[in-house]
């Protein structure tokens, strides 16, 4: 769906933020991890057309993004920003979610249907007439997710969706990601929460210093202990525990751990 070839970018002459990135994205849900400043957000902004590359190409559905404005790209690729307060523009929850669909020239009726459908997913459909700013922070975050989901784009990218979410909030986000995957959309996220990555994403890409350090099935990526250390990334807790106990295979979830534990006894 997305093809990135030899992509480089720098904000100023001295420091290169991204250099020589080659990536291809299929429909697998993908987590992008790495330290702050590794270039994750920059890559996403380039795909979204919010920044222009110095070198290289990004093709989405075979179309070069460099010829299009960010607003035009909004029909194919959605992005949920990290801070909800930067992205709430309207006075009611319903208007807020309809803002995107109306911008991409959906007719009013369809926009409303899509909006309500998206709000149902985040369980805010009982607050249509409320002022978004009266919602709690985690509700605002869910609202922002709904307002991108309603645009019904093929590709959806999240930037740190789980920050400041408690257990309940994370659970909802998990369900939304699952629902989007079921609709056969490409879901991508920038994230620091490794447990969440292990449980929800098929593919993981590790960025370090503006380059792709690791890329593959999440399980394989989290088995590369040494390389993860280079990128200052730690494997999920359960993976570390299994490894310390000498399990042969890389474990990603509590259930996997329990299954494996039954068929295995630790070395004496």
């Amino acid at each position: 769906m997305i093809k990135i070839a030899n992509l480089s970018f720098s904000y100023n002459k001295e420091t290169r933020v991204l250099s020589g990135i080659n990536l291809e994205f299929d429909r697998r849900s993908t987590a992008i991890i790495g330290q702050n400043g590794a270039g994750k957000t920059t890559l996403v902004k380039l795909m979204k057309g919010l920044l222009k590359a110095d070198e290289g190409k990004i093709l989405i559905h075979e179309h070069d993004v460099s010829g299009k404005t960010a607003a035009q790209l909004a029909r194919t690729i959605g992005l949920v920003f990290q801070n909800p307060n930067d992205q709430i523009f309207k006075r009611t929850v319903l208007d807020e979610v309809m803002f995107g669909p109306l911008n991409i020239k959906m007719d009013k009726q369809t926009a409303k249907e899509k909006a309500i459908e998206a709000l149902k997913m985040v369980e805010l459909d009982d607050k249509l007439e409320m002022n978004p700013h009266d919602l709690s922070l985690s509700e605002k975050k869910l609202l922002c997710i709904a307002s991108v989901v309603a645009m019904d784009t093929d590709i959806i990218i999240f930037d740190e969706p789980t920050i400041a979410q408690d257990h309940g909030g994370k659970e909802k986000i998990r369900q939304i990601i699952q629902a989007l995957k079921d609709k056969n959309k490409l879901v991508m996220t920038i994230i620091h929460d490794m447990d969440f990555v292990a449980e929800n994403f098929e593919r993981t890409i590790v960025f370090n210093d503006g380059q792709v350090l690791l890329d593959g099935e999440t399980r394989d990526v989290f088995s590369q202990k040494e390389l993860l250390k280079t990128a200052c990334v730690e494997a999920p807790g359960i993976t570390k525990l299994a490894e310390r106990l000498g399990f042969k295979d890389t474990v990603l979830t509590v259930d996997e751990f329990i299954n494996m534990k039954k068929t295995y006894s630790p070395p004496q």
């Binding site: 447990d195 359960i238 525990l241 329990i258 534990k261």
Partner: peptide, 28 residues
Amino acid sequence: GLTAPVYTRVCKALGVKKAGTDEYPVTL
């Protein structure tokens, strides 16, 4: 609205407590 650390959850599921106590492990 809380979950215990992953280490506690896995030990709870396996039913293993810290020796001589009624508590589950909480750290790696």
